[in-house]
Design a protein around this nucleic acid. Structure first.
Lengths: 261, 261
DNA sequence: GATCATTGCGTTGTTATGACACAATATAAA
DNA sequence: TTTATATTGTGTCATAACAACGCAATGATC
């Protein structure tokens, strides 16, 4: 009961003082992607007292840099921090907000939000995407009470408001980044095999790649360390393990993989 | 005097009712680029009663799509509408706003803005860039009273707040688009020669390109119509005129110039 | 120890790219 | 009118990048 009272207090506080604490009418939403069982998954939160899912999001404190707000959301939900986190688009259709979602959430606590409350106003949200490694030791376990879940990006359903469109736009941004930025560092475990990395690329691009050409191209980027270990245990020939060369990876992140023009 | 009174009235109105009309704490800024005399120029406005220059910007009406707000700013300043206008980044450092600019502007009219007025709060701005054609018949003449100017993008100085960083980020975005999107349609006149188009690319990329390789590549994109006219009048051999093939150009804008991966 | 899917490494033909040659031509100078 | 000059149109060649495919090596499984 004490806990429930505290939640109630927090909720009331957010309603009454949120507009003093946070930038009004603006939020950040994070498309947090991970790669597991050869599938790209996005972290979603169940909306309280609803059958909908939502992206982890948050508000921007009055004196907080936007990126910091996004990183705060990321840290809060995953335990991971300071990884590749990229602003990719702003979503601000006037009708994208849905006051009824908040009303329903609060009604369960016996609170009716005043019509002019800041939380019910139009919100413009800044979309960020992050890539995280499921084997990261800092990564929080997903609680099994069905309030949080990693959902296959190809099997999205019942997302709140425009959140499905936001995920798809993030995927699009990720795909176009793939052409000129090294991706993988944050999605793969420390050590991985070439076929594993290839699977990641195939999943993001949604098409098959030639095994031998992929390896040649990837090695050509010169961002990998070939380890002298093999991944034993699988049936068939044991593949070599690789790791990212952090120094070269960071350089490629800055400079791009090609000079292009 | 009547006019001055009206301006005064407008200003007071914005202060007092702006937060009812507009989304508070959020704005759009447009980096409007044109190509003239082999130089990329950006449209800047002189800040009233200041020696600083600012990007044309505006607020987002309560029920207005963000893109519409940006297009409104573009139309208002240039007379041109519905052209390539692209969101490229959000700028939201907590200290990017500068209350003194507004205070100084208003003090000239004898108004002291209350400290808690919405206009003096932190603003987060969404950056858009647009490419416009100086020969467009709809393009407004730049008034010669030195309140508006097309400034060489390489000679920026005395820009307000973070506006120089915004311009540079827009240029960066434009450069990276150049690799996979057709650019030029909105920056060039209807008819143009290959050397003229090449100059545009060289200016954006800030380096020389080989004349013959440029032509081969450009024609390879299959978005140009070769006209049977020549550009006479210049000294030396008259080059052919080209125009963009609108249908193919639009398709390339959607699909990109390469399939990439 | 044979089987077999998978991996490492390599080859070939095609296409894209960068560097450069040369003839054609519109004006300007002689 | 002729010549000079800078610029354009078109093409070549060597090299690099890329897609498609071959084959032997390997490590677990039967």
């Amino acid at each position: 009961m004490a806990k429930s009272n505290q939640i109630l207090g927090n909720k009331k506080n957010l309603l009454e003082k949120g507009d003093k604490l946070y930038q009004p009418g603006i939020s950040v939403d994070c498309v947090i992607l991970g790669f597991q069982e050869n599938v790209l998954k996005v972290l979603l939160l169940k909306v309280e007292h609803s059958n909908k899912w939502a992206l982890p999001g948050g508000f921007i404190k009055k004196n907080e840099p936007i990126e910091h707000a996004a990183d705060r959301v990321l840290q809060e939900r995953t335990g991971v921090q300071n990884i590749f986190l990229q602003q990719f688009n702003v979503f601000g259709a006037p009708d994208r907000s849905d006051a009824s979602i908040h009303q329903n959430r609060y009604l369960e606590y016996g609170i009716k939000i005043p019509k002019d409350n800041w939380l019910l106003q139009r919100f413009i949200t800044i979309g960020f995407y992050a890539l995280i490694d499921f084997s990261d030791e800092n990564l929080k376990e997903v609680v099994s009470d069905e309030t949080t879940a990693w959902i296959d990006i190809n099997k999205l359903s019942h997302l709140m408001m425009d959140h499905e469109a936001i995920v798809l736009k993030a995927l699009e941004a990720l795909r176009s980044q793939l052409a000129y930025l090294p991706i993988g560092r944050n999605l793969m475990p420390k050590k991985f095999t070439m076929p594993e990395l290839q699977k990641l690329y195939e999943t993001i691009l949604d098409r098959k790649l030639d095994r031998r050409n992929f390896q040649r191209k990837m090695l050509g980027f010169d961002i990998l360390n070939k380890l002298s270990e093999l991944r034993k245990g699988g049936a068939h020939k044991a593949p070599f393990l690789y790791s990212f060369n952090d120094k070269k990876y960071q350089k490629a992140l800055k400079d791009g993989l090609y000079g292009s023009w």
